[in-house]
Structure formats: C-alpha cells, structure tokens
Design a protein around this nucleic acid. Structure first.
Lengths: 193, 193
DNA sequence: AAGTGGTGAGACAGGTCTGTCTCATGTCTA
DNA sequence: TAGACATGAGACAGACCTGTCTCACCACTT
C-alpha cells in the first residue's frame, strides 16, 4: 500500500530538515546531514525537492502553516481583543522557555537569504505579514483601521525584538517587558489618537 | 616605511570582510572571496587572524565600536532625554534608507552562530547589551532605575523589530510606528508606574 | 652591505558542498 | 504473473571550503 498519496518520506524529510536548520542554520546544514538524519536516500530527497533552496522554502511554509493554525486557535471568537493579544504573548513566553528554542527560523532565514528576489526571502515576508495581519484584525475590533495598522506593526516589532533577546538568554525579562509595552500601546491606541 | 604600527592590510581586510558579510552572510562568504576582494594574499590574512571565526568576531567588534561612537555623539550632554531617544530613531531612519542597508549584521550573526558558547554569539550579546545600556542611562535621567531598565528593553525590542521590518522593505512604516510606540512608552513611564 | 619582516602568488591537502547517475530491491496494482 | 513505481545505496563530478606551506620579493633598518 502506498503509505500516503504524496508519500510519507517527503514530510519526514521536511520535518527532519526543520530540526537541523533550526539548530545549525541553513548554509551550515548540508544535504548529506539531512538525508542521514532522516534516514533517506539522497535520490528520494531530490525526487521530492528540486533543490536545497526549494526544500528550505517548503520547510518555512510548513512551519508558517503550523504557526497560523496555533494562532487561529488562540484568537478564537468570543474573547475580548486584549485577551487575544495577551494569549499571543503567553504563547511566545512558552515558546521561549521550550528546551529547543533557538530563535525565529524566519528571522534566521532572512539573515542568510537577504536577496529580496529569492524565494526564501519571499517566504519569510509571507509569514511575517501573516502575523501582522492577524494582530491587525484583532486590533480592528477596538480601534479604527489606521490605528490598528500602526498598532499591529508595533506589536510585531516588540515580538520580533523579544524573540531576539530571548535567543540571547534574556527570555523572561524580554517577554515581561514586551508584554507591558504592548498593553500600554493597546490601551493608548484604544482611547484616542 | 612601515605603513602603520600593526599594518594597513589588517584593517583593510576587516573592512572588506564587513561589506561581504553584510551582503551575503557569514557562511556564504568564503575566505577566497574576501582575500580576492581585499586584494590581499591568503597568508597575509591568516597571519593577522588565526581563523575565519576570529575574523568575524573582529569585524563585529569593529562595527560595534563604530556604532557606539556614533551613539555617543547622538546622546551628548545638554539635551533632554526625549530628544536623545528621538535622535536614535532618526539615526536608524537614515540607516534604513541608506542604499546598502541589509539589516542588522549582529542579528544575522546570531542567526548563523546560535551556540551561546561561540565567540561570535558573545560578540553579538556584547553589542546588544551596549545599546540597551545606553538607552537605559538616557531613561534614568527621567525615571527610576527599575522602570528605566524595562523601558530600555522595550525600546531595544522596538528597534530590533523595526530593523527586521526595514529589511523586508517596510522601512518607512516601521520607523514611524516604532518611534510612535517608543514615545508613548517613554511618556507613560515618565508619568507613573 | 647584510639582515629583517611584511607581503604576494599560488600550490596543496583534506574535507564538504550540491546535484546527477546507475543499479538493485521491494511493494503495490492490473 | 508482469509491470509500474517509490526507494535504497552509493559512486561520481565539479566546485568550493578552510587552513598550511613554500618561495620569491621588496622596503626599510642597522
């Protein structure tokens, strides 16, 4: 029996590559390492992905989809918007404390693939815009469009900065200060302009 | 005549490496590329730097020193603290608009060298802590120590996030929203807790 | 005039990189 | 039973990587 329509191995390679990329970076992680860790033949990998770059894009899109799903669950209907924002920060706090936290894979990808025309670069932009859009739609529940756009950008920047500080070993202080600043921004934007 | 006590070439290699690292990343930039661009023999490089990693640390420390000098000039005495913060954001706005802006080299270094024990990692932490310390000392002019520490962290996170967004092509909006959020944080922290 | 030290040029070693190719194997389907 | 197909194993090419080494050169000092 074919294990699954478009194969088991493909997804297994993606998940293995994800772990290795996260731990050691993209250029520093070789194809040989990936296929050894995934226990898969080289040709199996190259039959599913035309190149390493395409594999990287696949890994990023896969993680972005997972992240979006978790985000949707946090920001479900029937909860006041402040609480939704709070939950997003809670989620990040848990992430920062997880044993194999190594910073944001998308930010790392941007560092290694700085050419705006590169598919990896575009995948990163997609993910970050998605997160910003999510926060903007939350803020729009309590403030006009323009202010929600600025506020979402501010929240996104705080989160990205907190992720960086967390990677430098200041996770607890970072998430606490970012949350405080975020709540201040939301409260101020709600009241007036 | 010996050109300079510890040689001209050394600094020239550092500056050439800086440009290449900034443009293409650390792992993706080979030694051969650096010496070719610097027009220097390989042995000249290896006589000054024991390894590529040491060169990277040297490049980072060199840029950190330059950055600190510019920062000191911005935050000179006799200026109200709000204005000092404003100037730091102005400086970043100009940086984001500069033609060869490619994001923060230190953040990129963190992405490629995620091991906390690695010298490159430590060099990044030094630089970020320096920037945070600078902003904290500015905030301490107008608020107590504890609040200044949190506020400085928030400002640092906003700046790091803005730099990331700027690299994704949203420089103008990022710096505008980050500045607005920063001023709100400063004003709120000044008044009370 | 002899020596010293930084440098240039490039060969070289040993390893790793991505990506291609061949051939054998097993497994499901018609 | 026969064919189709994904896979395993690994050789292979060609490029690139870091780092070492030798030898010649040249400028300056003593």
């Amino acid at each position: 029996m074919t294990p699954s329509p478009v194969s088991d191995k493909r997804q297994h390679v993606v998940e293995t590559a994800y772990v290795l990329f996260k731990r050691a970076g993209f250029h520093a992680t070789g194809i040989d390492r990936i296929i050894a860790e995934a226990d898969v033949a080289k040709m199996t990998m190259y039959r599913h992905f035309p190149s390493k770059d395409e594999l990287i894009v696949e890994v990023l899109d896969y993680r972005a989809k997972r992240f979006d799903r978790q985000l949707d669950r946090l920001a479900q209907e029937g909860i006041p918007p402040e609480q939704k924002i709070g939950r997003i920060f809670d989620w990040h706090a848990r992430w920062f404390r997880s044993p194999d936290f190594h910073g944001c894979l998308f930010a790392h990808a941007l560092a290694e693939f700085g050419d705006p025309g590169h598919p990896v670069f575009k995948a990163v932009v997609r993910q970050k815009n998605g997160l910003k859009r999510c926060m903007r739609s939350i803020l729009e529940e309590m403030m006009p469009r323009g202010r929600a756009e600025s506020g979402a950008a501010a929240l996104l920047m705080l989160i990205e900065g907190a992720t960086l500080l967390a990677q430098m070993g200041q996770a607890d202080a970072a998430i606490r200060d970012a949350r405080k600043a975020a709540m201040g921004i939301v409260a101020a934007s709600r009241k007036s302009q």
